[in-house]
């Protein structure tokens, strides 16, 4: 009875209900995605996109150094000013330094390679898998020879003898 109930429950209507629930919940969740809710959180978010100009590979967000404090102050000033978007603030601060402070490489020129290469690798890997699976499919399963069958029979006999003894 339980098994039958279990089987009936797992039929396609239950999966459709599940899918509906997932879509509905995702819609509810993503609709209220509001990003940074306070000016302070906006400052933190922007500071995560800029490198500290004087540190060992830290972002402005991570660094406690004087240069990062100065950049954070500038971000706070821009945020309070309310004139620029986050990306414009990042660009303005990056432009004011000779070093490249952006932590995300650009999507053009040589820097674009960092974005393209992983995608190329993914495409090659998927294509490779498709080719390999096709080859495996056409190759088919190996057929057991009489010698193989003898080997298996001997092994099974030994196992049952060991168990009996």
């Amino acid at each position: 009875m339980t098994n039958l109930f279990n089987k009936k429950m797992k039929r396609w209507p239950a999966w459709v209900v599940m899918l509906f629930c997932v879509v509905a919940l995702m819609l509810i969740g993503t609709q209220r995605d509001s990003g940074p809710s306070t000016p302070q959180e906006r400052i933190e978010s922007i500071s995560q996109r800029l490198a500290c100009p004087t540190c060992d590979g830290e972002s402005v967000y991570e660094s406690r150094g004087a240069a990062s404090q100065a950049i954070r102050k500038e971000i706070a000033r821009q945020v309070a000013d309310g004139q620029l978007t986050d990306s414009q603030i990042v660009k303005a601060i990056d432009d004011s330094y000779t070093a490249d402070l952006k932590l995300v490489p650009g999507g053009t020129g040589f820097d674009a390679l960092i974005w393209i290469l992983p995608i190329v690798l993914l495409v090659v890997a998927i294509a490779g898998l498709v080719v390999v699976f096709k080859r495996w499919k056409t190759q088919g399963s190996l057929t057991a020879t009489d010698a193989d069958r003898d080997l298996v029979e001997t092994a099974l006999r030994q196992v049952s003898e060991n168990r009996d003894s």
Partner: peptide, 16 residues
């Protein structure tokens, strides 16, 4: 190759 200094940080890794 380009004689240029860039920094690749957390936002790149997070996104990828």
């Amino acid at each position: 190759l380009n004689n240029r200094r860039i920094v690749v940080g957390e936002p790149f890794f997070d996104r990828m």
